[in-house]
Design a protein around this nucleic acid. Sequence first.
DNA 1: TTAGATGCAAATAGTTTGCATTTGT
DNA 2: ACAAATGCAAACTATTTGCATCTAA
Lengths: 146, 146
Amino acid sequence: MSEDPFGSRLERLREAGHKLTHARLTVLQVLEQSGGHITSTELLERVNAADPSIGRASVFRCLDLFTRLCFIRPTHIDNNATPTYVLMSGGHHHHIICTACNRVIEFEDCHLDELTRELEQRLNVTLTGHLLEFYGLCAHCRSADQ
Amino acid sequence: MSEDPFGSRLERLREAGHKLTHARLTVLQVLEQSGGHITSTELLERVNAADPSIGRASVFRCLDLFTRLCFIRPTHIDNNATPTYVLMSGGHHHHIICTACNRVIEFEDCHLDELTRELEQRLNVTLTGHLLEFYGLCAHCRSADQ
DNA sequence: TTAGATGCAAATAGTTTGCATTTGT
DNA sequence: ACAAATGCAAACTATTTGCATCTAA
């Protein structure tokens, strides 16, 4: 598992001046057990299963906080209203979304370090993460398409 | 303007077997005049201003269709429930989102052609577009942050 | 001790649906 | 001519809010 260790996000939460509350720890744990992709609806279900005393609003507040901290990022896998949250392990995430079947294919190497540094210098910004999504047809849909 | 000419998307709509209806042409036009970023709510307003006889549902159906055709892509600029749609000119789009003030900084060159070809070969997929988002602090927020 | 975070339930906002009618080809 | 697309309004779903209470530091 090259996943960010649980502790490192807790660390960052604390360093940013946020309390390590029961709700936050639980939501973080569920997110990290999600395999990288989870919708808010699924998250609500799983958090509720883990601890029914945690309220819906807190889960949404966590999603918002964790997004601002760049732990996760909302995206739209299947083109419906509900976003899917992807775990930004190591600050980044990359995948291919099949526009025919919505299958998600993850890949690791993005070779964006150089571009990151170049943008930081040229635009005078500090970059902490990125999300790269490709769209197209997966192997299966490509052959079905003929 | 290195924007996709209006005609080329119409072409692709037709080629994919869709009718060139008044609602679709209007929504497309509003999207192309949006400067690249627009929320569904803003889109609804502008389409309604352009032609009040176009119904809400049709606008959402257009958003869905255009996303499947990779003309646009939903993303989350400001971390709230409403997605922002970005125009995928030339099939791709790249920007930096400031996590402090939500400012969006666009940039052109992503140097992802090589990676695209590599992924297509290695994973046996056909890629038609991509979205690359960086997150961090813009020049302004970086200095405010000190 | 106390600022920050929570749970609740109600309010809001955004999106989708079913269906009769219209329209592009 | 007719399959595809539309507009409508109602239904549905997801998200946010205000506030009294609780809790991590």
